[in-house]
Design a binder for these strands. Structure first.
Lengths: 416, 416
DNA sequence: CAGTGTTTTTTCGAGGCTCGAAAAAATAGG
DNA sequence: CCTATTTTTTCGAGCCTCGAAAAAACACTG
């Protein structure tokens, strides 16, 4: 079970805490850090002096310009942008997007590229990823040695260890250990994350007021995905990235899903399902490979304009999502929901049936109080989530190490 | 967010760790404790010497009599039974059961009582609970002052703070803050737990090999309940005890459930549902109040004997449970399952349809590898779980105290 | 039965860490 | 220029854990 706390863990953890406080607060003063961490001023002073000496933090103006106060002005502590850099790689349908981000979170280099992910061979897919990363690393603006971490995100299922993609709708290939591949190729630690989990991470940084301890991000796109934060922690399955909300069963034996099974929520609410129903095709019809965002927007426009199969298709989607959420809420209790992706722009068409369905379920006891947010564009969210994930890794594992590196050679004395 | 680690927390946590190690291992030697906690021998020596001095631990023979080894024999450390005592109160349909348990986990006094929970008034129900607790505390064998904790368990929904029962099938009353009531009455800290969660806790102590980090306990009784352990932690909802597996939706608009809604898993797999289907009554038939265990066993016997509505009823139950588990597994990935309660004794009738259904779902990809255990008797499990819950509370909160009660009246000012 | 080997447990000094109090620093206001 | 105020640093005290060595407790051996 869990292990005792060694004496040296103490400093490590408190260092991590200080870095985290700075990352969250922007440019807090030492006093503010002391307040949020609960540690004493002396401790914060010692730790931050270390961190500045190591080039991790840098002093600057305090965050609030309201420095028109009486006493000694606060000195803001900020992350030193040059302390490190991280790289994000987002692989989505027919699209590959890479960015290099400095330690303070600013994008310093990026590249995007169209691919035909559905038909590419395994080697080609891996090759493209490796190549685009290599090009960014060779960018003269980038100091390769400063890149401390790569975070990949992909639509689909990844493993809990964040090493491999297990399955993805964007490619017929399975079980690609992207993290291991990139690590071997570039010698930079890498992780392979699930796209919806990264959306959830990003929402938490974007709006910590609303998305704090418990919330749900649902991707309404070609497939239906979910990122779930419970009790302040990203929820993952025990073996995989988990949270396959889209493949909860809505109707046993029902509509044909892209995954080959029947009755999944996605088989009613995914783009292909809405499109299939809007065209009044049978529920047994093989899901089409891709419906463009433009087509979906046109469908939504028609549905808004007049009653008909289009509107009914959105109603069915809402119903499936509502019952699915109801079942989910039976397990975890209701929580704020963010709808992300192209169909989030059609949430007005989905919401009535969704709320009606949810009211029929155990989780819907206070269905009117459940609040939904819509964000049509998932890509920026996924990128942000990846960046934060990689940066917090650097914060914790690289700048607050001490697992077993007893290697301390020269005892460092106080920095003058 | 999380708070820095103070210097005094260190000792507190390591004390708790040592106590936990002793509770898990039985009579470990100091050397064994050092090994499992990862702390040094000197530290373990210091802490255990403190704990013995405080009467929390006691020396004794080592756990393994295989002490025929060469050197200085190990000295076993055990929990001192007289260090404290706890009380468990389990309230189930028409039955109230109380036990007093010493610090080492032995029952030292108990009492059970039949009640008519379904028709009792709120006051009568509370009164019975208070009275039975009082009688146990007045037992001359018990030192009242040693009773450090009361843990109640009830079938139904409790709140996350473990203070109150929110809703229960065993009584029409709602929102009874049992924990507060008992605390006020006896001045002993109390918690109100969900029965299925306690089953899960107990399974973990009974068989840590099988039920370690991720597993599911499902109560198949009049209602369907669930206790879920994920990543080594008891899973609860964000507001309530959560994990209302029985009220996930199996068929939208389907059979009438005891909760008043339609299509819940329970409306197919609860005792009343199996009974209703076996009698070939309509799915709209109002659920009967109670089906006796004897009636259920008779039903199962008939189903085993010949094809007919009884067998079909169990098949439907299996199907509902299978699809429900499939949806659950879509979220959390498959995990070992313990089926508990009277219908667990009929699991042979349920399993085929359950496995068939689960194979139709996303979580069922490796359905044959999912393993089920059956335990027909839930009450002992619930009692054990309560006892362990109360005892670990004493371990942590009373014998390793020192929460950072920063009681600081000098809060934050600085609002220019 | 004393001596030797082995394993467990305790002791002791060293080194770190956090804390509170006090000092130092930096500014606005008068 | 002096004073009040707030932030930050300094310093000694008090704990805590650790490693090494000593002490303890037994089995085995001749």
């Amino acid at each position: 079970m869990s292990v005792g706390i060694r004496h040296d863990d103490l400093r490590r953890r408190n260092r991590a805490m200080v870095i985290a406080a700075v990352r969250r607060a922007g440019r807090p003063s030492r006093t503010e850090i002391a307040a949020t961490t609960g540690l004493s001023h002396s401790t914060i002073s010692a730790i931050s002096s270390d961190l500045i000496g190591e080039g991790i933090l840098a002093e600057g103006k305090p965050s609030e310009a309201g420095a028109l106060k009486r006493g000694r002005p606060q000195v803001g502590l900020g992350l030193n942008p040059e302390a490190a850099a991280v790289m994000t790689v987002v692989l989505s349908l027919n699209f590959l997007s890479v960015a290099v981000i400095d330690y303070a979170g600013q994008v310093i280099s990026e590249e995007q590229r169209r691919l035909d992910t559905l038909t590419m061979s395994r080697e080609a897919l891996i090759g493209e990823c490796v190549a685009i990363v290599r090009r960014r690393l060779e960018d003269p603006d980038i100091d390769v040695r400063s890149v401390a971490r790569i975070a990949l995100a992909i639509q689909g299922i990844t493993d809990t260890k964040a090493r491999a993609m297990l399955w993805s709708p964007i490619t017929p290939q399975t079980d690609i250990a992207f993290a291991d591949i990139l690590e071997a190729e570039f010698g930079i630690p890498a992780t392979m994350e699930n796209d919806c989990n990264m959306m959830a991470v990003a929402l938490r940084w974007r709006d910590p007021e609303r998305y704090r301890d418990d919330f749900i991000a649902i991707l309404l796109s070609h497939g239906i995905g979910m990122g779930l934060v419970l009790k302040g922690e990203l929820f993952t399955g025990t073996h995989s990235s988990g949270g396959e909300f889209g493949h909860m069963i809505h109707r046993p034996g029902g509509a044909l899903c892209r995954c080959g099974r029947r009755g999944c929520v996605e088989a009613y609410a995914g783009n292909y399902a809405i499109w299939r129903n809007a065209r009044q095709l049978s529920e047994d019809t093989e899901p089409v490979a891709d419906v463009s965002d433009a087509q979906m927007r046109a469908l939504a426009a028609t549905a808004r304009e007049r009653a008909g199969p289009e509107r009914e298709a959105y109603r069915k989607a809402g119903e499936a999502l509502g019952y699915g959420l109801g079942s989910l809420f039976a397990l975890i209790d209701p929580a704020p929901v963010a709808m992300v992706g192209v169909s989030a722009a059609a949430f007005d068409l989905i919401e009535p049936a969704l709320r009606e369905a949810i009211a029929q379920t155990a989780g819907g006891q206070h269905s009117e109080s459940i609040s939904f947010d819509a964000e049509p564009n998932e890509l920026p969210l996924i990128r942000e989530g990846c960046a934060m994930r990689a940066l917090t890794f650097v914060d914790q594992e690289i700048f607050a190490p001490g697992m077993q590196t007893k290697a301390g050679p020269a005892a460092k004395k106080n920095v003058a």
